[in-house]
């Protein structure tokens, strides 16, 4: 089968918060539907399994130019990725991602967070970002940053109780994510402050 089609170009990875997507530019063939297939190769395959490639069946003969590779990028090693195009009986050569992809380079964003004053109780609601994520929550009485307290949240339940508050002062909270698998943390979220007032939630 001669390679009638050009190989897909501009192959790149979009990786945020341990979700990884492979994208590429479409191959244009007038009046035809071009389909794409994606394969990956981990460091194990390169070093111990004759440089074999593994197809991702969810991205076999697809028309989209994006493939969710999150489930297959499941180790902190260097991965190779490639894409080829098909039209009818025509098939392109493989287009390969330039360089390797290691999930350690994923970009980590601060968590979405909602701080609640429930009477005299300081609570925080954290975004569920998946099992790979833990959270580090810092909280303090406004003006007493030196006495900041820290709570590590390993599993996101609906609401996390931080502390009992005194009436009057503001209590401030900020949070960051931590991913053990890659041993990295996000930057901190914006600080949010609340004040306890006899059982009514008050936003500042």
């Amino acid at each position: 089968e001669d390679a009638l089609l050009p190989a897909p170009q501009n192959i790149s990875i979009l990786s945020t918060n341990m979700k990884h997507f492979l994208t590429w530019s479409p191959v244009i063939v007038q009046g035809e539907t071009v389909r794409y297939s994606v394969e990956f190769q981990g460091e194990y395959e390169r070093e111990y399994a004759n440089e074999s490639w593994i197809p991702i069946c969810e991205c076999s003969l697809i028309t989209a130019t994006v493939c969710n590779i999150t489930d297959d990028i499941s180790a902190t090693v260097a991965y190779n990725l490639r894409v080829r195009a098909d039209v009818g009986v025509g098939r392109s050569e493989w287009g390969t991602l330039e360089g390797f992809f290691n999930r350690i380079t994923t970009s980590l964003t601060p968590p979405l967070m909602k701080v609640i004053a429930d009477g005299y109780h300081l609570l925080v609601e954290l975004e569920d970002m998946g099992p790979a994520f833990q959270f580090c929550v810092l909280y303090w009485k406004k003006g007493q940053e030196s006495r900041m307290q820290r709570k590590v949240v390993k599993e996101v339940s609906s609401v996390v109780h931080l502390d009992a508050m005194e009436a009057g002062p503001d209590y401030c909270v900020k949070a960051q994510t931590y991913v053990e698998a890659i041993n990295r943390s996000s930057s901190f979220s914006q600080t949010q402050c609340v004040r306890a007032q006899g059982g009514r939630s008050v936003w500042l």
């Binding site: 990956f40 981990g42 460091e43 194990y44 395959e45 070093e47 111990y48 399994a49 593994i54 991702i56 489930d71 297959d72 499941s74 180790a75 902190t76 090693v77 991965y79």
Partner: peptide
């Protein structure tokens, strides 16, 4: 095969 690859690459790490 994909899961075995995941395990193998995690083992390598």
């Amino acid at each position: 095969n994909r899961k075995i690859s995941s395990i193998a690459n995690s083992f390598l790490s």
